[in-house]
Write a protein that binds this DNA or RNA. Sequence first.
DNA 1: CCGGAAATTCCCAATTTTTCCCACTTCCCG
DNA 2: CGGGAAGTGGGAAAAATTGGGAATTTCCGG
Lengths: 148, 148
Amino acid sequence: MFQGASQISLDAKGRLAVPTRVRDPLTQGGTVPVVLTAHPDRCLLLYPAPSWEPVRARVMAFPSLDPAFNPWKRLLVGFAEELTLDGSGRLLLSPELRAFAGVGRQVMLVGQGNYYEIWDRERWEQQLDRLTSGGSATTPPGMESFSL
Amino acid sequence: MFQGASQISLDAKGRLAVPTRVRDPLTQGGTVPVVLTAHPDRCLLLYPAPSWEPVRARVMAFPSLDPAFNPWKRLLVGFAEELTLDGSGRLLLSPELRAFAGVGRQVMLVGQGNYYEIWDRERWEQQLDRLTSGGSATTPPGMESFSL
DNA sequence: CCGGAAATTCCCAATTTTTCCCACTTCCCG
DNA sequence: CGGGAAGTGGGAAAAATTGGGAATTTCCGG
């Protein structure tokens, strides 16, 4: 179960150093490859390869004649890349994925249960600000009764 | 049932010394880990790990294709960290959580029933001022008939 | 088809960070 | 006033991150 946020800076070669706290659960000690892909909110999704597989299968099963599904399929399947971490536990982000997510020098790596999200730092802050200053206006229908 | 407010100062390493009065109910004598996460009001939530579990489960059950829920999941699950207190009963707050809550040297630890809230001291004061000087203007709908 | 330049990949090593533990001081209670 | 517990600070060992360097591969141009 992935959770927790880490601020990470990419090095000059565009490598993202995955913290050990994240790396071990994600790759089960370096043995398992990972899959990176794109999300409509302009962040990247990071799965252990085995966990991505069933998601991909479900996306591929979308009815391809319904035009509403096609953009999703293009994002999720089209941008997917299987990668392995290097000896020091770093990921090399492709220029395509970096461009899509607007990733600069600083990124946030955010646990979301089955996967991690990778955000450009600035974009992440903006997203947070909208929630924290928005008040209850941003509470979606059905969530009014949610209690912590 | 957690209640009561304590003013606490973090040490140079960002460690928060949990008072024994709070520690024992929270960790049941040091045996139980705790979970820290973020709240939209820019404070942190502190749960005994077992109490956090059902909350997390409800958040994870949000419909993930509905964009309105995603920011909440990013906040509550994305910032969650399971921690154990060190030998002296201290919590090490991660830089990410400290940055989110704007935590400086002084914090308030405030009991809230199932969990504690951790506030930057200054932010806590501002919050109080808004309530005490705001008068009845801030009384939410449905609370007009509330009696103490 | 061959040579050279550039880019990529892989790996090593130093520095920085983290973690764990110990010792001292202070406060409270007996 | 003494004993004990709690809070505070510091330090050393271990681990992790960071940066760089060298070798290999790839891509063009001759």
